[in-house]
Design a protein around this nucleic acid. Structure first.
Lengths: 164, 164
DNA sequence: GCCAATTGCTTGAAGTTTAAAGAAATTGCA
DNA sequence: TGCAATTTCTTTAAACTTCAAGCAATTGGC
């Protein structure tokens, strides 16, 4: 009887505990910060996080974006974006225009109102985030950025391998 | 005229850009992994992520947990947990029992079926996560753990300061 | 013991989210 | 050209989520 291999098999049926703990910690951090941002957005601006996120994507460009672009960037489903855009057009923050060369395509832009309101929120938002990470040194931040970039690459590789 | 202070004021109206980029990267990582886990859970086990998360909390304990405990640990609202538990009791995965000493309190446990199914899923889940972080060295993982712990502490401090 | 405050949970409304199916338009290829 | 794939977007159903209001039970002064 091979005691070594027996013991190993029982105690280390592949030790993936550290990765799991890492994932849970990552998730906890994100959930915590997301909840905080959500609360503050509601409290100070009476706006939901998804709407803020959508406007943030649109604020980056001047000439509009299609629904598909939005759903890819926000990493949510197409149908989801349809509904969000609908409500934001309704409230006067967004402007939708059908493409002249491809009638399936809708270009979405921030209205003047939408951009003005977003800019106000974004300024505050940036301060909140700075405060949230206030205990981290510049070096900590650089290191986190680097490691998260590596993690992102790894996760993309893993996701791609599955769907292939 | 003081050129220095002028320039500074224009170019650095508080530079919080790095923190914001860090937050977006953190969020992207989490969203990416979460989406991957969600897909695989649905695909292989036909279960939703929230249900898996809830069962994961209950699997840690043998003698059950109250709804409040669950909502605190999962960092979601009370009403949310009520609905989730309801559906999982319905499907035979959970068991609810009213406390004898405090009739407001409900103790929730995994049924035999629930625990068996969860264990199967958890084994697979752990492998997925190990693969997701597969490109990271043990040292990378240790560093990420450390920095995320620091970030979590910082975020908690920030959240607490606001609500105070 | 009384009763205001607190705690545990549920409910209802509004919104977000996904997955899946489908409609409309365009593209590419034989 | 013809028409099968593809792309873009919408729709639908079910589930998830939050917030706020509310109910019932318990607790902590007094």
């Amino acid at each position: 009887m091979n005691l070594d291999s027996e013991t190993k098999a029982v105690e280390l049926p592949d030790d993936h505990g550290t990765e799991l703990r890492l994932w849970l910690r990552l998730l906890t951090c994100t959930t915590l910060i997301e909840g905080e941002v959500r609360s503050r957005l509601r409290e100070k601006f009476d706006v939901t996080l998804p709407r803020f996120d959508l406007m943030a994507q649109l604020d980056k460009v001047s000439d509009g974006m299609t629904l598909s672009d939005l759903s890819k960037r926000m990493m949510v489903s197409n149908g989801n974006v349809t509904g969000l855009v609908e409500r934001l057009v309704e409230s006067g923050h967004l402007d939708r225009r059908t493409s002249e060369t491809d009638r399936r395509v809708q270009f979405i832009r921030l209205t003047k109102l939408g951009r003005a309101e977003f800019r106000k929120m974004a300024t505050e938002h940036e301060k909140w985030i700075a405060d949230v990470f206030g205990d981290l040194s510049p070096k900590d931040i650089r290191e986190l950025m680097r490691l998260l970039a590596k993690a992102k690459g790894s996760a993309q590789r893993s996701a791609k391998a599955r769907s292939a």
